[in-house]
Amino acid sequence: MSNLFTSSIGKKLIMSITGLFLVLFLLFHMCMNLVAIFSQEAYNMICAFLGANWYALAATVVLAAGAVIHIIYAFILTILNRRARGKQRYAVEATPKGVEWASQNMFVLGLIIVVGLVLHLWNFWYNMQFVELAYSHAEIEALGLEPTNGAALIAGLFSNPVYCIVYLVWLAALWFHLTHGFWSAFQTIGWDNQIWRPRVMCISNIVATIIFLGFAAVVVYFYAISLCPGGVCY
């Protein structure tokens, strides 16, 4: 294993493993969110289960480490790649045939995802797990916060059409990022050949689309029911 993680392929391996770990988390998070569409009570039970307890906190730390390592290595690799490209750029550049737009803009898409992530943590994690960590139960009650009532937080946020659009744009950036990132991770690990490449690329598009639709469904559903309070549409 000597010098594995200082080599170019080793650094890419870190990107691919952390990326696949984050995709697994997204699938878990999406399944959890979809519960809110079918039963807000059941969703709140999940929120209570994933509060400020040791197993949820340990998972949060591991997840945060995965995300932070992925982001740090994205910066390191981008800086190295820009240096390798050199200061003198082409006056005329044409995108070669068959090269996906997402594959050439992963860093920019990643930055959009990070900005969206900060907003998302402010909207939800701060009002849920963080307040349970930072305040006592009495203080939380005095402040009028309900950290385990995630369904109310979702319903409140997505009744605002501006937030709905911002979240959908964020999810669209995630979709583009995943269409390339997912299959690219397998290519870096070495699980790819002439036969499997189109198959893995197809699976990549399917996974990215499932994740986009799963998250977007919750945004759209809660915006729709905000237009129909009490089941009566105006």
Binding site: S8, K12, N81, V99, M106, G190, N193, Q194, R197
Partner: peptide
């Protein structure tokens, strides 16, 4: 630089070398 699997090299290679060989290099190296 570090490969980000865009496939641009394969598209412009005058000999049409496939990036599947890059996956093999990754396997061999790792």
């Amino acid at each position: 630089g570090n490969c980000t699997n865009t496939g641009a090299c394969e598209a412009e290679c005058p000999k049409g070398i496939s990036i599947a060989h890059i996956a093999r290099l990754n396997r061999e190296f790792l």
